[in-house]
């Protein structure tokens, strides 16, 4: 099919909106309602993930050293830690620095006066690269650090990290499930509308078949119509959501709500396009099978 032919058929599909405006508006509204549920789910997940990423930045592992460790051995441990995949930075915290930090936290309580010596060990604080901040990877890095000679103990928020990862996984599964359910609902809505359009334009289809139009030519206007419905509904939903977030949410919510990121918007529109196509193809299958 030539480009000119494609544009002619696309115009045919879009002209259907002018010929059956009530049908088109009803379809777009019902699809928009489904998309709104999906967009809100993605928005919630996106905002939680954004918060979790900022927590990720604070994901650290503390590697405590044995007492009176020679400087050469300490340097060797530092080199080994720096060479570990997923470790972004390594900072040495001497016994004195640890004590100063303790004093800052504990206020007036003087540890040295109480014990007669500084019991806090020197340590290395590892900050992890964002991609390495999964519970499993942190466990691996900590375990490798613990096996280095001269290392006495390794500490990190194991349980807290595992709970966070589980919660994120649950959230993503919920998002996926919502996308599947909404996908079915939208495909069904597009399918129903295109079916009605097919019924309203059965004369045209009959003529197309009679003069020898191929199935691709017969399908094309309806596919364009299905995609247009889904895309208009998706864009309308995003615009509505953006208006609500910018103008309404600051008055009712304490937390700042971020709108979807460009890649999420692109994914949402691509998903809408696919659903529009699927719904239209679904409704045309039967019509074209009867075209012999």
């Amino acid at each position: 099919m030539s480009l000119r032919g494609f544009f002619y058929l696309a115009r045919e599909g879009l002209a259907s909106a002018r010929r059956h405006p009530a049908l088109m508006v009803a379809a777009i509204l019902s699809i928009s309602a489904s998309f709104l549920v999906l967009a809100i789910t993605i928005l919630i997940t996106s905002n939680i993930e954004r918060s979790v990423h900022s927590l990720d930045n604070r994901r650290v592992i503390d590697v405590y050293l044995a007492e009176r460790i020679p400087a050469a051995k300490r340097a060797a441990i530092e080199s080994a830690l720096r060479a570990t995949a997923g470790v972004d930075s390594v900072r040495y915290i001497s016994k004195d620095e640890a004590l100063a930090a303790f004093r800052a936290d504990a206020g007036r309580y003087d540890l040295v006066e109480a014990l007669g010596y500084n019991p806090l060990p020197a340590s290395f604080r590892l900050e992890l690269a964002p991609g390495a901040a999964t519970a499993a990877r942190i466990e691996e890095i900590a375990s490798a650090a613990g096996e280095l000679e001269g290392v006495e103990d390794v500490r990190f928020g194991r349980e807290w990290l595992q709970r966070l990862d589980k919660a994120l996984l649950t959230l993503r599964l919920a998002e996926l499930l919502t996308a599947i359910l909404i996908g079915l609902a939208v495909a069904f809505a597009v399918n129903s509308t295109i079916r009605l359009t097919v019924l309203a334009r059965r004369d045209m289809i009959e003529i197309m078949k009679a003069v020898g139009a191929t199935n691709t030519y017969i399908r094309m206007p309806f596919l364009v119509e299905g995609v247009a419905q889904a895309l208009v509904a998706a864009l309308g939903t995003l615009i509505l959501l953006k208006i609500v977030i910018v103008n309404v949410s600051p008055r009712f919510l304490n937390a700042q709500v971020h709108f979807l990121e460009p890649r999420e918007i692109a994914g949402f529109l691509a998903f809408a396009t696919a659903l529009g196509l699927a719904g239209a193809l679904w409704s045309l299958g039967g019509v074209l099978r009867r075209s012999a």
Binding site: G5, I207, V211, I218
Partner: peptide, 19 residues
């Protein structure tokens, strides 16, 4: 909903004549 001209031209357009 189309003119006489468009009814006849339609047969050409949907069979791939596009000039």
């Amino acid at each position: 909903d189309r003119t006489i001209y468009d009814n006849v031209a339609f047969a050409l357009r949907i069979t791939g004549v596009d000039h």
